[in-house]
Simulated scan of single mutants.
Amino acid sequence: MNTSISPAPADVLGIDMSKTKFNAHLLPSHGGGQGREFANTPEGFHALDQWLRQLLGSSGRTRLRLHAGVEATGNYALPLLMHLHARAHIVSYLNPRRVKDFTRCLGRKAKTDPVDAHDIALMVQRLRPSSWVPPPAERCELQALVRHRRDLVAQITANDNRLKTVHCHTIITSLRLLLKHLRKLLKDIDGKIERHTLAHFSLQRDARLLQSIPGFGKVVSATILAEVPRMEDFSRARDLVAFAGMAPTTATSGSSVRRRGRLSKEGCPLLRHVLYMAAMTVVARKNTLRSFYDAMVARGMARACALGALMSRLLRIAFGVLKHQTPFVENFARLPSS
């Protein structure tokens, strides 16, 4: 999760991550720049600290503090992010798509790990992206559980589809046993998610608030709490909508280019998936939010676009519910004044 930073240190570090190693490129405030490769292990993190002290220790500062940029690469970068944050450095967790767009602006012809680390350092130096703050431990664990649940559901769906297409008795028997085991694991992980939520007051409170919204069950509420672990970092609902990749985009130029608007889809796909399922649940029932969907369709909006608008509305409601710690009231405007 990102939040604003101020003031920013002059020294900048760009880091290109991979599974077993990472390349770092330092751009000091006094000019120049050097790069080096390190192992993606605690020993490699310690070697990075020593390297930085050697390059920057001569400036007379008692404590090093720089702005590091790390390209998001799944979970490979998380231990290094935690390490850098613990050393009081400012860390930015960068969107790979934006890093790629920045590199294209530089006109690079080559793409190697050292070059990528240098370009990331340049991006941090020129754009000063917002900083990353580690979420609370209970939110990190919830995120791991929710994402593991997503993987189990994907495996169940894939094997169930395969079961419908095979005709070999041996394979059918094997797939049925596998599906039985996967469904048992899914049931176990659902129980662990529920117990983990109940064991932490803040998660239990927020989950109950979210479940007051139509279409939001245990899975949807747990996913939102896992994928948006620091709701306080968002000052406006539109910022959360953009974070989820549901902000509308347009493309117009002159009199000839009039492309149809669509969702940006730059954010978390799992978040959009559960919001889509919640929107489908809302549409299948008679409620205030279903009326909103019907009104969009009546205006001539395509049903898919209206569903996207409903997803955005649901996320905005979730933002308000958590920000004000107040459950959703369906006919709030019609309640009599006290």
Rank of each mutant, 00 (worst) to 15 (best):
K265T: 10
S221D: 10
V12A: 09
L64R: 11
L163C: 04
V99N: 03
R97P: 01
M246K: 07
A137C: 08
G191V: 01
M1Q: 13
P248C: 07
T223V: 13
L178G: 05
L163N: 02
L182H: 03
E71R: 10
L56D: 12
F234A: 04
L307I: 07
H85C: 13
H148A: 13
K100P: 03
L94G: 01
L179D: 00
F22R: 09
S131P: 00
D11F: 09
A110Q: 10
L122W: 07
E266S: 15
F328M: 06
P248I: 06
C168N: 12
N95W: 00
W132Q: 00
A247R: 08
L78P: 08
L186V: 00
I15Y: 01
D233V: 14
T249E: 14
L163M: 04
V241N: 05
G14F: 02
T326G: 03
A144M: 09
A284V: 01
V12E: 03
S4K: 12
G32W: 05
L315G: 02
L94W: 04
G32A: 06
H181P: 00
L142M: 08
V257L: 15
D113I: 00
T223C: 12
L263R: 09
V228Q: 11
L84K: 07
T170N: 00
F201Q: 15
L307D: 02
A306H: 04
S338D: 12
S338H: 12
Y76R: 07
N2W: 13
L78K: 15
M311C: 14
L270H: 11
S337R: 13
G320Y: 02
K286R: 12
A295R: 12
A333Q: 14
L289R: 03
H148M: 08
Q34I: 14
G217N: 07
A251N: 15
V241K: 05
M82E: 15
P7T: 11
R104E: 09
L179N: 00
P28Q: 09
A278H: 01
L270V: 14
R258L: 14
H181V: 03
F319N: 00
L314V: 00
V146W: 03
A247Q: 11
D116E: 03
R285V: 06
V153C: 08
A10P: 08
N75F: 15
V329A: 12
T3K: 13
K21E: 15
R290N: 06
H169L: 06
G107D: 02
P248D: 09
L84A: 06
L177Y: 01
G74M: 07
C268H: 13
G60R: 09
G44Y: 09
